[in-house]
Amino acid sequence: MRTVGPVIRRRNEEAGGALIGYLPVGFPTLDASVEAAVSLVENGVDVLELGLPYSDPVMDGPVIQAATQQALANGFRLADGFEAVRRITDRTDAPVLIMTYWNPVVQYGVDRFADDLAAAGGAGLITPDLIPDEAADWMAASERTGLDRVFLAAPTSTDARIRQAVDASRGFVYAVSTMGITGARSDVDVAARTLVARLADAGAPASCVGLGISTAAQVAEVLEYADGAIVGSALVKALADGGVAAAGELAAELARGTRPE
């Protein structure tokens, strides 16, 4: 199984760390989202995070909301997510995580979802509205299938909750850089640095920072202390404005931030 841990470790040995790129499935079309994801990997993205469009995306800012709403209007179905994973993993070596709100997984069936994701070649799940406290079904399904499970940690999380996120996660812990939702920001909060240090103290094998990262300089800055940098809205905006080519160009630019000067 293609999981994310080894890739993140390798990129920390040979470079500053891993670059993780987010795109929603089905935006602007299913085919174009697959092409864009492949292009990200060809241009230096190490791990893909594919978002499943959802009707009520409470963690997403305007750019990702607009993209996923369009994908839903175009008729996105959950099965498209597995197809996208299959097509992307056929063409690249990058591990592919699915980022999904929890209700679609519940309705599909947690076990069935895990089986179909593993069969498609997926690496695991990032679950923005599932905290470990509510995740018994998913813990069992991911143990059974070997899928990664990425939980979030926030600057406001208590030490006990940080430890819980570290213990529950496999692959990496998603460190929320700042209080807020997705969307490019001009400066990534200092809170991220403290949070990553707290995660390390709690024994996290890997922490990746997301929310607000949009430039190569920010990627480089984050990789000074974290194992990976996650870029979402900036890539989606490039894809929306300039198509697959623009998304690939931005990925190449961001990847420069992973290489120490």
Partner: peptide, 15 residues
């Protein structure tokens, strides 16, 4: 019931 929320809100809900 339960709490199916982003981790960022847990501290506020606890408080």
């Amino acid at each position: 019931g339960g709490r199916f929320v982003p981790e960022s809100l847990v501290a506020a809900l606890d408080e």
